[in-house]
Design a protein around this nucleic acid. Structure first.
Lengths: 120, 120
DNA sequence: CTCTTTTGATTACGGATGTAGTCGATATTC
DNA sequence: GAATATCGACTACATCCGTAATCAAAAGAG
């Protein structure tokens, strides 16, 4: 199932706060995005259609919650991205992030810990 | 400048062999993709329009070469992807790749070396 | 020289995406 | 109770993308 970039913004809100309605989502997004509530509703509709969200009627409105797990989605996308851009090799990706100063000291520490785990 | 997935396939060929024409590109891609030569030409045209490729006339045909560096493009895309999917944090991305067995032993060794570099 | 092939240029077309507007029904506010 | 706000459903529409087809000109085959 394909989730477009703008749709992902909606999903992110719902992964953080499952079970809210369109208006609440708009409130959360209002700080970063200047999306019309209708735009948000359109995307909610498309996400439901795609099977990414479930609806639950609450009075006259719907509450939405993800049917896709954030972790699963991220895993799939990460794999796909690495395949497309780096021929499936993860190391060059990290190298590029590092090179562009996309890695904080904290990231580096975290990665070290992670690699320690992986080696076991 | 935005390069679509299918267009990226073309770019990859030209990054490997700058200065070839549409027919040669088709030959290279013939093994993986079953793209009509017309499709390839359409994408070449779009890439030129987007400023991703330069043309050089050779007789009646064009030779193409990238105006964008592969490394630069990868860096930009990697950053963008990490921002979109992981809120800008690289560590979770690597963790997800690891978790889905997207990392080979070789990758891990490479990453370790890389981190060693970064710490200096 | 005529037929065929190849080339770049232009056009086509359906599905996805971003960004809403319209509409009919209901809930809420005076 | 009448005006207004809000909800979900449906429609709109330009742009991008994937995947070509058409066309006129030129080059090559015979």
């Amino acid at each position: 199932m394909q989730i477009a970039p703008a749709e992902l913004e909606i999903m992110n809100v719902l992964w953080d706060q499952p079970g809210i309605g369109a208006a609440e989502i708009a409130d959360v997004l209002a700080s970063d995005k200047s999306w019309n509530i209708r735009t948000i509703k359109t995307m909610l509709g498309r996400l439901v259609e795609k099977g990414a969200l479930a609806t639950e009627a609450e009075g006259r409105r719907y509450l939405y919650r993800p049917l896709v797990k954030r972790g699963d989605y991220r895993r799939k996308e990460a794999r796909q991205f690495v395949d497309r851009m780096f021929g499936g090799r993860a190391a060059p990706l990290v190298a590029h992030l590092a090179d562009g100063k996309g890695l904080s000291a904290e990231d580096i520490a975290e990665l070290e810990a992670l690699l320690g785990e992986l080696k076991k």
